[in-house]
Amino acid sequence: MPPDASSPSPNENPPAVMARSLRRTFGEFVAVDGIDFEIERGECFGFLGPNGAGKTTTMRMIYRASPVDGGRLEVLGLDAASGDFDRQIKAQMGVVAQEDNLDTETTVRENLRVFCRFYGMSTAEANRRCDELLEFAGLVEKSDQRVQALSGGMKRRLMIARGLISRPRIVILDEPSTGLDPRARQNVWDGLARLREDNVTLVLTTHYMDEAERLCDRIAIMDRGRIVACDSPTGLIARCSAPQVIELSLRRGPLPEHAQPLLTRAQRVEHLRDRVLLYVDTPEDLVGDLTKTLPDHPAMVRRASLEDVFLELTGRGLED
């Protein structure tokens, strides 16, 4: 079937991904609870959310590894919910799954070589592509070793390289940088930035707020199967209940009783395991009083960040 034969979208240039009331259930459990979003071509779109929020489930529906139980889902204008266009959709997509699924019986290079076959590359073309990607992943020296000989971060890099084999129009990255050292992460960011220049659409999840803030044009924050906010990183930060944050360290024990009246002066208080966050418009007076009253609990002031929005919107910490 030609892709445009029964394409439901009348739009000449449909968005990369479009979801309406998208649902996915596992038995009684609703993992994705009627979400709406649109991902423009060439943008970097991030899903953030606590463990179990439904990010991976959403991505799996997009990359056609999972059925759609309700609502609409279109990828590049093709109806993804029906399952009829899976081959066309997947031909234009690269996937880096959350769980490594490398071939443990072949070498690093063969892991890439085998996948070139699925995209009908000639031998010369495939060899060239493997060279490029081994270089990109920093695995040239390891190319003839078995996958078992790789460290966790190297496996992750190989997963990313494999996801890019076909020069896809859309790349789905489910926690791509988990387990990477700072330099490797920087390399991946550079690689993703180059893809952006080529107008490739990126859809990613991450638990690193700095990564999300740095890479994403727009971010959807998910919680319990729903999207609780969707905006640019700066737009999200602006939604935070206050622009400044005072961090009180709990390193030397819990806060004493007489700290309570001080806490009430903040717009919002967030209790974490090792610190307390106080959200305020102007921190100066409160910080002065805190240092006087609580000498054992050093206070630090910073601007509100994506992490603060995350904590506020998802109602529980990253650390729980």
Partner: peptide, 19 residues
């Protein structure tokens, strides 16, 4: 069995146009 359940290699195949 190893490809299907341990390596989850079929999941990877299915991310290509293969069905």
């Amino acid at each position: 069995f190893i490809k299907l359940n341990f390596d989850r290699l079929y999941d990877a195949y299915l991310c290509t146009p293969a069905q």
